[in-house]
Amino acid sequence: MKKIILTLVLGLTLASANINVDTTYSTLGAIVKKIGAEHVNVTVLGSSKYDPHFIVPKPSLLAKLRRADLLIINGGGLELGWLPPLLRGAHNSNIQNGAKGFLDISHSIAMINVPASVSRAFGDVHASGNPHYITDPHQVPIIAEVIYKKIKLLDSSNANSYETNYQSFMQEWKEYLTEFDAKMQVCKTKKVVQYHLLFNYFLNRYSIKSYGNIEPLPGVSPSSKHTIELIRMMQNEDIKVILQDVYHEKKSASFIADKTGARVATLPHDVGSLKGSDTLESFYNTIAEQICR
C-alpha cells in the first residue's frame, strides 16, 4: 500500500514538473510554446533585436543554460560566435552536444547556399550552408516535427498532450500557409537586394530573386566601391526593393534608395524583431507585407 501511494505521489510530482527548454532564438521558442504549452518553460537566449550571429554572451545566460533540460539550437554555424563558451561554462551535462537534451534543428533542414569552397578571404561565409532557414514559413512544420519528437522523448508523461498540441498546430499552420501562399502568389515584388543573405529561404520559396547584398562579403561592412556597383546593377536590373534587417546600420540602404528610387523594406529576422511581429503568424505576415507592399 505504502509503495502504491509513493508511486502515485512520485508519479504526480513527475507529471506536474515542467521541463525547461532553452532555445537560442525567438522563433524556435515560439514553436516550442505551441507544442509544449503549459508543460514547458521556454527561455529564449538571444535577443531578436540584435544580430543573431553575435549575441552578447551575458553571464546571466549561464544560469539559464545551467537549469535547462533541453537546448534547441538553430545550428548551421549561426551560434558559433557566442554559444560554445557559454555551454562549457554552464556545467550542464544534459544539454552538451550529443547529449539527449541537445537538439540542432539544422540537421533536419535541406540547407541551401552550401559553398563549393570555403575561405575567410570570402568573408565570414557560412561553411555548412545558409543557416537563416527560419525566415521561410514552410520550414515551420519540419521544425515543429523534430521539436515535438524530442519533447515527447524527454517528457513521455505528457506525450498525449504534446501530440494533441502538435496535431492541432500542424492543422492550424497548414491553413495559415494556404492563405499565406495565396497572398504571396499575387506579390508584385520579384527582384530585391538585401543586406545579408538572411531571407534567401523565403525568397527562393516565392520565386523572388535576390540580386546582391549591401555587405560586400558576409560580415564585412559596406564599401563605397561595392555600393556604387550595387546601385549600377540595381538601375540596370530595375530593382525597386531593398531588404533591410533591424540590426545593421541603415545609412547604406537609405543612400542606395536615394540613388535608385528603390524602397527600403525593414524586415524582422526573428519573432519579435519588429513591433507587431510577436507571434509566428504576425512575424511571417510582416515579412510578406514589407516585401510585397
Binding site: P59, S60, L62, A63, R66, R67, G89, A90, H91, N92
Partner: peptide, 12 residues
C-alpha cells in the same frame, strides 16, 4: 573544480 548554482541568478 567549479560549481554553477541552479539558481535564477548566475552564481559560480
Amino acid at each position: 573544480l567549479q560549481w554553477v548554482a541552479p539558481t535564477d541568478t548566475y552564481l559560480m
